[in-house]
């Protein structure tokens, strides 16, 4: 197991009180596999990424849990130790990463610099050669290496950022909304290339996105997040073909299909709960079509549907029982 996250809780000190952005989130990630963390804005998905990298803002703090990476707890490491791991073993592609390129330096110099900073022992020529290989990998023509970022299209900038993330051959990449703001065709190409690169280098990836359709194609496992909690976790096929949590079901029905019959989109009514004082029971119950009296009073328990598929909902199996009786 490359990464084991156990009961991770993260909060932010805000004017209105302590905001519990992430509560008791657990998941594991094997070498060479990818996990998609999906949820609406404010559900805590980006916070998890930042917590794993030790990059929380000053008002944020991990309040509990363990993050085991190759057998060491990242949360117990000093800033110095973390710096040895960041980028070299865990790389991150940030939201709107294409704006992360420095406009006054040539793209290849920027990536060579990243390589040299993390591997001071190699020569400049060696670093430039590596950059060349990286550009070939991510599909930027050699003739464009010496360009400045403003000469690149959005897709090319994103490719350059992926090249930079791959520069030190990390074991894990955390990609936060890697394709937001790209056109459909470019997005498709980049997702396909990411998939190929992942296979080729056996990298593990955590994809963070608000859009299920983006992570669906590239991820082996899917974690659905709602209001700071992981509410469903399983293999991709299990989550999509047999969604168990009512939030997952509701989320899926807000996506269109292209089949001959046009289906009515069913938006989820209401708003997500306030995370400064989260409700004692299930956090989704106010918006849930199947909530009962017990949902509001106590926190829901994890229900194991298969050894690899679980949902944080007390009632999800009741419905499943009914369905079995019917068929």
């Amino acid at each position: 197991m490359l990464l084991e996250v156990e009961n991770l809780s993260v909060g932010y000190q805000t004017k209105k009180g302590f905001l519990k952005a992430v509560e008791e989130v657990s998941f594991t990630l094997e070498k060479g596999k990818s996990l998609g963390l999906v949820g609406e804005s404010g559900c805590g998905k980006t916070t998890i990424g930042m917590a794993l990298m030790g990059l929380l803002p000053p008002n944020g703090a991990v309040t509990g849990g363990r993050v085991m990476f190759e057998g060491h707890d990242l949360l117990k490491m000093s800033e110095r130790e973390l710096r040895g791991i960041r980028w070299r073993k865990i790389a991150m592609i940030f939201q709107a990463a294409m704006n992360a390129l420095n406009p006054v330096h040539r793209v290849d110099d920027q990536i060579a610099e990243a390589i040299l900073t993390h591997n001071p022992q190699i020569s400049k020529e060696e670093a430039v050669k590596q950059v060349e290989e990286l550009f070939e990998l991510v599909g930027i023509p050699k003739t464009r290496m010496r360009d400045y970022p403003h000469q690149y299209s959005g897709g090319m900038k994103q490719r350059a950022i992926i090249a930079m993330a791959l520069a030190c051959r990390p074991k894990l990449i955390i990609a936060d909304e890697p394709t937001t703001a790209l056109d459909v065709i470019v997005q498709h190409q980049i997702l396909q290339e990411t998939k190929n690169l992942q296979k080729e280098f056996n990298i593990s990836i955590i994809f963070i996105s608000h859009d299920i359709s983006i992570v669906a194609d590239v991820c082996h496992h899917i974690g659905i997040m709602y209001a700071g909690q992981l509410v469903e976790y399983g293999r991709r096929e299990e989550v999509f073909n047999n969604p168990m949590h009512y939030y997952t079901k509701a989320l899926l029905s807000s996506y269109p299909t292209l089949s001959r019959e046009k289906k009515q989109l069913l938006p989820i009514p209401g708003d997500a709960p306030n995370l400064v004082e989260p409700p004692p029971g299930c956090r989704f119950c106010d918006r849930c079509s199947a909530s009962g009296a017990t949902c509001k009073t106590g926190p829901p328990e994890w229900v194991e549907i298969t050894p690899t598929h679980r949902a944080l909902c007390d009632r999800c199996l009741e419905d499943c029982g009914e369905r079995k009786h019917k068929s």
Partner: peptide, 22 residues
């Protein structure tokens, strides 16, 4: 346009739509 797209560009756009599920 969705069921019977003709232009190669429309077809390329449809190919690239991210999709999931069964």
């Amino acid at each position: 346009i969705i069921q019977n797209p003709i232009h190669p560009y429309t077809r390329a756009l449809l190919d690239a739509l991210p999709r999931f599920g069964d």
